[in-house]
Design a protein around this nucleic acid. Structure first.
Lengths: 240, 240
DNA sequence: AATTTTATTTATCGTCCGATAAACATTTCT
DNA sequence: AGAAATGTTTATCGGACGATAAATAAAATT
């Protein structure tokens, strides 16, 4: 976040769930207002998750129990409200500790990633975040690109790197698109489970932990073959 | 399709791509009109695939090069137009021969399903059908339920059944949700490839045939274990 | 060529939506 | 308690949208 235009105006749009009063120079937001802000974002997330981001501000206001123009006290435009919903939902489901936990080589990659997926899906695979995520993707929202980049960089590439090392391949940072793909397939398969369960409302396998486990089994069965296909730069010469 | 209300009225909404003039009793549609109908549905599919089904009839008309009220000569309501888009897109991508091809036991299940997925994704994994499919899913459109049911019944359950037989398990029709899940994971992983490529515009593995192949490898590596978990009613415990 | 049928446009209605301005209410500060 | 600041409502505007009615243009029928 570049703070160039820090004191530009009083827009509270970027405040996240009412816990950051922008700058201590200005008076902090009243507690009741923080709650209202939070309620608005929550109601908006719910409504948007149901009908998409074309959902009306009037309906959101109705759910909060206030009049529609009041929303414009908290967010200058509807797009700012949408942005706040993005921030709230995406950041809410992200656990900072994952990054380091996935690097802990005292635990097998298999176990690290199984733990990760159990945690991750616990929050991310609930109807509201899941549906919003799909809506955001279709809308071409920047945050979705960013979020998937996060998944790719922090989770999937990490899985490949750690697993490669575990198998005795040279320890290098670079992960090719082809090497990454099986990991994405696992991730995508699980996403689709959420899609079927929470969006399409289809009957799915009841034991989700088993699904995660089976998915990882699939990955670990095939991964080595894929790694081996990749021409490694490390061995013959140094370079890079 | 129940034909109870066959002659109910002149609504052309259910006409698919202008090749069925409802009933020969009435005069057939002019050729120019059939083309117009086709163009409208095509333009609608394009527009809806970009912005969702909230897209405006005015924009669609603009793309066809006609005025907006003209659309209402061809479709009584916007919902009827949407329905026509569904029909056109979903039916367009479905090949009737797949059903039988997947049952041909002179070819290995592996090969049958690899062929199927190469064909299937060729049309289904293009931006317009893919995006429309996600929009329709989020919208809760009946046709999406129906379509996924089709995938499940005709493709995935078939895969499980045929593969089980190939492995020496008893030949029975029933496929449990748990047995079905790995197949859905494969399907979902591929769907997510399309999602990443055509919706999120992320960089994906270039060789999609390889992705299909690897995905099926994953499936065939793990499937037997999953089948074996299932308590069979047919035979106590003979089998392979 | 005249007439009927079909296709298309022009004009318009009512509704919903995002947003603004001004009045009113409540809380906080002194 | 009174003034100032903050929170909320009422009223309203302009624009977009789905849909309808009537006028006009083009094609088919006779």
């Amino acid at each position: 976040m570049t703070d160039r235009t820090d004191q530009d105006e009083s827009s509270s749009a970027r405040v996240l769930l009412g816990d950051i009063p922008a700058k201590t120079e200005k008076k902090p937001m009243r507690k009741a207002s923080q709650k209202r802000l939070h309620d608005i974002v929550t109601a908006a997330a719910e409504h948007f998750s149901e009908v998409g981001f074309a959902g009306s501000t009037r309906e959101i206001a109705k759910r909060v129990g206030v009049t529609q123009p009041l929303l414009y006290r908290y967010f200058p435009t509807k797009d700012d409200l949408i942005e706040a919903v993005y921030q709230a939902v995406y950041l809410e489901q992200w656990d900072q500790t994952w990054d380091t936990a996935l690097k802990d080589r005292s635990i097998s990659t298999r176990e690290r990633f199984e733990t990760f997926y159990r945690d991750y899906t616990k929050t991310a695979f609930t109807p509201i975040p899941l549906r919003l995520s799909y809506f955001a993707g279709l809308r071409g929202a920047d945050i979705n690109q960013w979020y998937n980049h996060l998944i790719e960089e922090l989770i999937l590439k990490q899985l490949v790197r750690e697993h490669r090392v575990e198998l005795g391949f040279p320890d290098e940072a670079y992960v090719s698109p082809a090497e990454l793909e099986p990991a994405w397939q696992i991730h995508g398969g699980l996403m689709h489970y959420g899609w079927r369960k929470h969006v399409l409302n289809l009957r799915v396998a009841a034991d989700f932990k088993q699904v995660i486990s089976d998915n990882l089994d699939m990955y670990f069965e095939i991964a080595e073959k894929v790694y081996a296909r990749e021409p490694r730069i490390n061995e013959p010469d140094t370079a890079h």
